[in-house]
Nucleic acid binder design. Structure first.
Length: 277
DNA sequence: AGTGTATCCTGCAGGC
DNA sequence: TGCCTGCAGGATACAC
């Protein structure tokens, strides 16, 4: 659910309010969202003060005093929200009581999300396994083309692999491939330099415009204040199976592989040429 | 190395 | 109304 634009929106919402807050108490209502024993999680965080909040891929990364790093991956339905009356939390899993203002609540219907408190060294190791940030200057069309040339995976599967590119999920992978005119099952190494450049541009455009629209809310996603995003109406193919392509009116197809739905326009994204390269 | 499959969970929509 | 099935934005472990 929450991909790069949604996590970025949450982080931007937390930035003005979270730093300076000290965790006074933690209540763990569902320990299965923790990646470590609950006592260790609590001991590392209790009494620490938030200093900054960042995003890495789909992870919220909060830095606290004494070198403690809180990493939150929201899974499908996770939310990190301030507990206020206008944004009721239906499935709270962890509640952080802070020294001033409302509590910070990790709420997650399906509990696929994960939280972990670690030190800087542990975080550096985790960070190293993630691919480049698609909106950063280190992510170039040339690098993308080189990386693609080493894989025989279908391009959609490759885009979802967080070790290749960090932050892309099923919605934006499908959207970017449509914008780039590339079939989701095309093999990575069949990608020409021109196609890699198109895909590079499509990824950046798709993700940055979704950030501007504060993320895509299909059902569950909410920002740190509990508000939905505005990007859902901008989706061109995701969730639009059987509906006409907004570009050419051909019926959008739905295909399942890698255990996920892929949506594409067979006319704008032909499987066609270059497949067996 | 890569892929398909199952798994962790709950909720919702659709068919009967 | 109830029951059943399939589906959902993610990550990971397993066998092959």
């Amino acid at each position: 659910m929450p991909e790069l634009p949604e996590v970025e929106t949450i982080v931007r919402g937390l930035r003005p309010t979270l730093p300076g807050k000290t965790i006074e108490r933690l209540r763990i209502l569902h320990a299965d969202v923790l990646r470590q024993p609950r006592r260790e999680f609590s001991a590392r965080l209790k009494g620490r003060t938030f200093e900054s909040v960042d995003r890495r891929g789909k992870n919220i990364v909060a830095h606290l005093t004494e070198g403690v790093v809180l990493v939150v991956n929201l899974g499908m339905t996770g939310r990190l929200v301030w507990a206020r009356d206008e944004t009721p939390t239906t499935h709270p899993a962890v509640r952080f009581t802070v020294n001033a203002g409302p509590a910070l609540v990790y709420d997650d219907v399906r509990r696929f999300g994960r939280l972990e408190a670690m030190n800087e060294t542990e975080w550096a190791l985790r960070d190293r396994d993630l691919g480049p940030e698609p909106l950063s200057s280190t992510f170039t069309a040339q690098r993308l083309h080189e990386d693609l040339s080493r894989s025989v995976s279908p391009i959609r599967s490759w885009l979802l692999d967080q070790r290749r590119v960090a932050g892309v999920g099923n919605i934006y992978a499908n959207e970017a491939l449509h914008l780039a005119g590339i079939h989701p099952q095309r093999s990575c190494k069949s990608m020409t330099e021109g196609e890699a450049r198109k895909l590079h541009r499509a990824l950046r455009r798709t993700l940055s415009s979704a950030v501007e629209n504060r993320g895509t809310t299909l059902k569950d996603y909410r920002d740190a204040s509990g508000n939905p995003g505005d990007n859902a109406s901008r989706l061109r193919v995701y969730g639009r199976g059987e509906e006409p392509c907004l570009r050419c009116s051909t019926r959008v197809c739905r295909l399942v592989f890698g255990n996920r739905s892929a949506f594409y326009c067979p006319s704008c994204q032909p499987f066609g040429s270059g497949v067996t390269a």
